[in-house]
Amino acid sequence: MNAFAGTSTANPSWHIDDARPGTGESQINWDHVGDALFRFSGIFAQVVSGSTSSIYSIIDGRSALPLTLQDIDRTGIMSEKLDTLLLEFSALEENWDGYDAQPVSHFAIDQTREFLRSLKTTIPEPSLAPDADGSVSIIWDGAETYLDVGFDPLGRYSFYGEDKDLGEFELEPTIGSVLNNRSLSKYLDKLTV
């Protein structure tokens, strides 16, 4: 039985209960629903029909509403690949790491999206990873500069940087604007290509 039995309230031409979950190990597979392609990751669904791609938010496992333009904004260094990863993180359930990890905080995912959208496009694409406490880590592991920026479920950010010129710097979880942090800016500048 499909986890999502219901129809889209926004687009009644496709039905969530027609879709089947994918079977790949680490990726969400695409399924055909009529002439559209469909995939879901827990609380989000993406539908591609022709050249149009829409992301929907699943409400109560029964119906779907389209996300706003801001939700699928891909400015800064936000890419489809990073967006997809964050969608996958949002679908992880308790104990996803085998060691009692918490589900990834939607608040941390939102903060991550905002941060990635705000970065200059001259900064290379980072890797993303969920943390066991529900945080999200954004990691650049370059030859000369290592930077790990994280957002936690309490709305705090933290980072750790290593660089051959700047040395080591650690900021423990802090409330405030990540974009105004001068120490972080120095490490981000070192990543710029």
Binding site: N2, P21, G42, L92
Partner: peptide, 8 residues
């Protein structure tokens, strides 16, 4: 539910 993202 067969979702690979949720499998361990």
């Amino acid at each position: 539910d067969g979702n690979p993202v949720k499998a361990k």
